[in-house]
Amino acid sequence: MNLVYINSANGLSKAALETVTYAKKLGADVAVVTNGNAAAELLATLGAYGASTVLQDAGVDGQDPSQLVKLVAAAAAKVGASTIIFSHDLIGKAVAPRLSVRLKAGLVAGAVALPEADGSTKVNVFSGKAFGFVKVNSAVRIISLLPNSIQPEQTGGNCSTEAFDSQAGSSAITIKATKKPEGAIPLPEAELVVSAGRGLKGPENWGMVEDLAAALGAATACSRPVADIGWRPHHEHVGQTGVAIRPNLYIAAGISGAIQHLAGVNGSKVIVVINTDAEAPFFKAADYGIVGDAFEVLPRFTAAVQRFRAAQH
């Protein structure tokens, strides 16, 4: 049996559907364990992605990894899981390592593909500059899947939902405040990303970046110096010492393409670079390049996307 942990407290994220699809593709039956009180009808839709049962513990709110690890361990014991899958998102990064120690089960952190024939699983290493193939030496294995590594796939099927009391105890973490910008797309999950660097000259010019992102339905990102000087929030900083992302499309305006920046974004499927300097190193990593002034190109790009979207409807 493959067991997938998802957080359904805020609905079913794309990352959650990816993990269920991944578990299905591994073969064997798929059970899902989740916290929170999502409606049974919503959880039942996981059947289409390959789940056969969903265990739901409404008593766990999903804020404390030390509770979540007990929830997943209890579910793993109940279903006899041989592989346990997480998303390599902020919750998976906190819980999967705890589970690895609790079950003494090897963890493949940040898988980017299904396991190879020899049982090893591909992950990014050196911040995306290379790949490594991880072998797990224990009977039970844990895999956390990097978001955007596979597409959710509906294969049809039904699943049952079952209330599950995991005896996970109380939370040791007190929540004081939560800030979630409305409508913002979480960067690591975003399929389209518009990013800008020091070439934009100042925070007052980010309207152009946000307009293009809005036209595309993209998340926004930035280079490190831009976050360091406070033009943009830290969580937008991508690169070797920021967030590593692998969207379908990464658009970089006014970013030189330093090796540390590339490290965090070179897993992107398609890269578009806009830079006044034809010699900027980023062009070597780009699929499409525009040698031009971002201040002129970005508004034109936005208008072209709007024309395209309008023509589609």
Binding site: V125, K129, A286, Y288
Partner: peptide, 18 residues
């Protein structure tokens, strides 16, 4: 509990389309 069995490098990008 784990070992890296092998490593590989990403495929080289074809040249940029301007």
């Amino acid at each position: 509990l784990t070992t890296f069995s092998t490593y590989s490098m990403p495929a080289a990008k074809s040249s940029v389309k301007l």
